[in-house]
Design a protein around this nucleic acid. Structure first.
Lengths: 133, 133
DNA sequence: TCAAATGTAACTATTATAGTTACAACGGTG
DNA sequence: CACCGTTGTAACTATAATAGTTACATTTGA
């Protein structure tokens, strides 16, 4: 299972899109987490050019319309790991299977990851928010 | 990132399909892990009706041709969690967003997961093994 | 009958993730 | 223009998932 960061990021972005003055404390209260966790997430979303925020000023502002923020860009903003599936480290190169398994899996997993990412790309923050009301 | 179980399971199944007498110790040596980890995985694959094995008898036997073993069934065999994405626990029900976010995300994440699973379903163990030679 | 293997429980180790504490820096408001 | 509330971030701790290990009862083929 993939971590809950995409879920939390979407929650944060939804609140901000409704009220750009929502502080990290209020957001944390809605998400049920710590304000620092929210601020860290906002920092990642900022690096990804999804929103802006300034020290000392409560809240944050989306840089784009929710309809133009795809879940894929949010996902990539908050996800360290590029790869969807982990592979096992150091398979035995003396075994013909161990020697080539990582390459074989890379090719296979890539298309699966692409399928998932295409679906994420097809959905926007607005699409999710439409389910909120 | 999803754990390495699918990768390890495919590695194990590849070795078994090439030689059904391969012991958990030899498999572990190729994967670079502990024989018990391999036996646990084999136990899961057995429960999923993908292979058979017997106490005291080295190796295991596939119950189907590699071309008829989809990566989705392997994935489901070794993966405890049904859900692809985690959601954050106990969002605040007093907040209109917190109250409905999980439902909204469930609907959204479901189609993404389905896209990934469809791609896994379209690939067989044999497809992966074709990359090994 | 016995050496070698599996099956599994119980424990430990490792790592990713999330949560927390602390505090410097910033800025709008009175 | 000082102050209070806020952000930004570092550093640390806690938690949980995963993998690795030890130990041993059970099975079986030679």
């Amino acid at each position: 299972m993939i971590n809950s960061r995409l879920a939390v990021a979407i929650h944060i972005l939804s609140l901000i899109s409704m009220d750009e003055k929502t502080s990290s404390e209020i957001i944390a209260d809605s998400v049920n987490t710590n304000p620092v966790v929210v601020r860290r997430m906002i920092s990642l979303l900022k690096k990804a050019d999804i929103l802006t925020s300034r020290a000392g000023v409560p809240g944050a502002s989306l840089k784009k319309d929710p309809a133009n923020i795809s879940l894929l860009e949010v996902y990539r903003a908050v996800q360290k790991q590029e790869e969807l599936f982990a592979v096992h480290e150091n398979p035995n190169p003396k075994c013909p299977v161990g020697k080539k398994i990582q390459n074989a899996l890379d090719e296979t997993f890539e298309s699966v990851q692409r399928a998932m990412e295409n679906e994420l790309a097809s959905k926007s923050l607005k699409d999710v928010m439409n389910h909120l009301f």
